[in-house]
Structure formats: structure tokens, C-alpha cells
């Protein structure tokens, strides 16, 4: 097929698989590490945000209320994380279920521990 300007050989003709690879860049199924780090960063930021509420504004944000928000948001983020990884890897031979399970389990345990022991 005809490829966009800058790809394929000069004078028309088809593109090679190397040209297709160059147009794609990093494949989405190889982004699991970056997606996992983003999820963990979002989870830590959520902890930071809710902690700012109950440490600096305890009269407005009681600690149990902050923990409740933290738990609900962790669930929201976990759904997004699972969705991202599964959609990016569908239709390929890649399978990161182990990484996803370990990450979700880790944040679940972390969420419970933080809710039990952190705060006023």
C-alpha cells in the first residue's frame, strides 16, 4: 500500500515491515511497565491528597471521611489500571496478569494498612 511521505522506498511501491514498525514506535502492549508506574503514582498522589485533608484541615475533613475517599478512589484507579493493561494487550501474545494481580494486591493491602494506622 502507499505509505505517507517519508516512509517506504522512493518512487512509490509498498512499504516494508520495518517502515510499519517505524510508524508505530513503542507498541501499546509493551507499555505495561509505564502504565503500572502511572497507577502507583496516582495511588500515592491520592494518599497525599487525602492525607493533606485530614492532617491540615481536620475540622473539615475527619480522618474516617478521608480514608473513605481514599478507598473509593483507589477502586476507581484500579479499574482504570486493569482496563488500560487488558485493552492494550488484547489480541497479542503478551500477558501481564501476574504484574497486574501483584500491583492490585499490593495497593489493596497498602490501602487497608493506611486506613488502619495513618491519620489522627
Amino acid at each position: 500500500m502507499t505509505l505517507p511521505k517519508g516512509f517506504g522506498s522512493a518512487g512509490g511501491g509498498g512499504g516494508t515491515s520495518a517502515d510499519v514498525e517505524r510508524m508505530i514506535g513503542r507498541r501499546v502492549e509493551n507499555m505495561t511497565g509505564m502504565i503500572t508506574l502511572s497507577y502507583l503514582a496516582a495511588w500515592l498522589a491520592t494518599f497525599g491528597g487525602t492525607a493533606a485533608g485530614y492532617f491540615y484541615y481536620p475540622w473539615a475533613y475527619p480522618t474516617p471521611s478521608g480514608h473513605y475517599a481514599f478507598i473509593v478512589l483507589t477502586i476507581v484507579e484500579a479499574i482504570g489500571y486493569i482496563f488500560c493493561v487488558k485493552v492494550m494487550e488484547e489480541g497479542t501474545r503478551k500477558n501481564s496478569n501476574g504484574i497486574v494481580a501483584a500491583t492490585i494486591a499490593g495497593t489493596a493491602v497498602g490501602t487497608v494498612l493506611i486506613s488502619l494506622y495513618v491519620g489522627n
Binding site: S38, E77, G80, V87
Partner: peptide, 9 residues
């Protein structure tokens, strides 16, 4: 789709 899921979350 990835960016959209992140923004949806």
C-alpha cells in the same frame, strides 16, 4: 484510548 481512560479515571 490510553489517554482517554486516564482522563476518564
Amino acid at each position: 484510548w490510553l489517554i482517554v481512560i486516564a482522563m476518564g479515571s
